[in-house]
Amino acid sequence: MHPIEVSQIAKSFGDTQAVVDVSFDVKGGEIFGLLGPNGAGKTTAIRIVLDIFQPDRGKVSILGGPMSEDKKDRIGYMPEERGLYQDIPLERCLLYLASLKGTPDQKARKTLNDYLERFDLAEHKSKKVKELSKGMQQKAQIINTLLHQPELIIIDEPFTALDPLNLQLVKDVMQELRAQGVTIIMSTHQMQQVEELCDRILLINDGINVLYGNLDEIRQRFSGHAVMVRTGSNLPELPGVKDISSHNGDFKLTLMEDTTPQDVLKTLTARDIILEKFEIAVPTLSEIFIRVIEEGDAK
């Protein structure tokens, strides 16, 4: 049984159908990307998974069954909008929220000090939350999600307001947690981070699954029948190549149905064309996202 199993959930608010039909599983110890354009139903789906909202239809199993009060302490959740008390000192705020997660005070203090050091917030722990910069508040929010050492983390837009150094720090922490067997669901619009971190993804649009599965497999599925080539000179017309287009100094060669990349490589070497780069053209996740959402190409 997977930590999360979601089957055909639906949810409406008045006349608005926020989630129409969404199903997915999240395996233990993986980083799972929940993607979609604004208003696709991601946050509602997350709230249904967390039992904050009751679905109109469908089933959710979390950590082996329906949500219970005990399970809440085993889950870390970071909503997109910061959920911290603005008017109280950072340390007090985080310790209070950890106490509500059932973390013993001494353990919470020790873990908190470690995280504050690591996230470079130790010297700001006595400041009120509202006195911290946006980036610091984001890091504090991440610490709050991790402080009670949950086995399942659901994190919405974790990289907002982070500079490159802190972004890398958060990615490192997430990878370490995965290595420790912690399951992470991450919702974000930053496709590059999804490509770097996620094992599997679910792309939803208008409340419906549109793309779901292993990230590498999905990219392969969308790779098309093309190769990327970089040479020192212009390319002539080649047999078996339908189209040649320029992409940031490289050439993208779209192949005919019966032509393989090996055929093209043989042709190029036979013509003594010096190759600086030759690779199967795999689209970025951003490109896949745009193709799926704008062009409705879900393969």
Partner: peptide, 16 residues
């Protein structure tokens, strides 16, 4: 205040 600063959403996942 907790509704506005979204703390409520975090609290609802800690307590009933």
């Amino acid at each position: 205040t907790e509704k506005e600063n979204r703390t409520l959403e975090v609290l609802l996942l800690s307590i009933s």
